[in-house]
């Protein structure tokens, strides 16, 4: 049985008088790619921020690797990697310098060959490694951030709208990379409103609407989740 790495159990979040998450339940197993899909204001980012410990839930529990976000957030943060929608890192540093710096902040020492190997694994072209990051495209910055996550040996990755702003080739490349990471045992939790992208890469998709999980889709025997089925459910919710 797959070990549950991320679990939301009756998770409720309220801002002022507005309920943003209403008894949200899901679990993500080890090596699984889980996409939380929803329109604007559905509560995707709030769910992500709750797991990152920047928003406290009103009730319910959020656990990562068996640790409660409310109680063990510092330990959780040591083990997870987070890629924001716009990965900036440091423009004045090169890709390698960025990785070295962030590793040093996490008190992790890696050799130069290890770093090079991680960069090769995420397919960041070698000519970019020693260029200032201010010259990187979004896709290149994402690859660098994933290389960092690899080097940190983070078993859980949280991704916020990872494919927004990427060209189709970059999206395919990114999806392949995520699939490889999952195959190697990493657990990936992403929030997105990109139906097609989510169906391509995720093992399961949770459809979030008005703070509630209103649908759960998973791969059956196919290589991908059925895009039309998800799209139809997503559109139906959007029109309500």
């Amino acid at each position: 049985m797959q070990k549950d790495m991320i679990v939301a159990s009756s998770l409720c979040v309220r801002f002022a008088q507005q309920t943003v998450l209403d008894k949200v339940n899901f679990n993500v197993g080890q090596g699984e790619v889980f996409a939380l899909l929803g329109g604007n204001g559905a509560g995707k980012s709030t769910t992500l921020k709750t797991f990152l410990g920047t928003i406290a839930p009103l009730s319910g529990t959020a656990t990562v690797m068996g640790m409660s976000v409310s109680k063990d957030i510092d330990s959780i943060r040591q083990k997870v990697a987070y890629l924001p929608e716009s990965v900036m890192l440091y423009g004045h540093l090169t890709g390698i310098e960025n990785i070295k710096y962030f590793l040093s902040l996490a008190d992790i020492e890696k050799s130069a060959p290890d770093i090079e190997q991680a960069l090769m694994r995420v397919a960041l072209q070698k000519s970019a490694w020693c260029r200032p990051m201010s010259n990187y495209s979004k896709g290149m910055r994402q690859k660098t951030a994933i290389a960092l996550a690899l080097l940190r040996e983070a078993p859980v990755l949280f991704l916020d709208e990872p494919t927004s702003g990427l060209d189709p080739n970059a999206i395919d490349e990114f999806n392949r990379l995520i699939a490889t990471l999952a195959a190697d045992g990493a657990t990936v939790f992403m929030v997105t409103h990109d139906v097609y992208g989510a169906c391509q890469v995720a093992h399961r998709i949770g459809l979030l609407d008005n703070g509630k999980i209103v649908g759960m889709f998973e791969r059956k025997d196919q290589a991908h989740i059925d895009t039309e089925e998800v799209h139809a459910a997503f559109s139906a919710r959007s029109q309500q």
Binding site: G53, T54, I76, Q78, V80, V87, L89, Y90, F102
Partner: peptide, 13 residues
């Protein structure tokens, strides 16, 4: 502004 603070915090700094 660059979003690096978020990364650092979620990295547990």
């Amino acid at each position: 502004e660059a979003g690096t603070l978020n990364i650092m915090i979620t990295q547990g700094i």
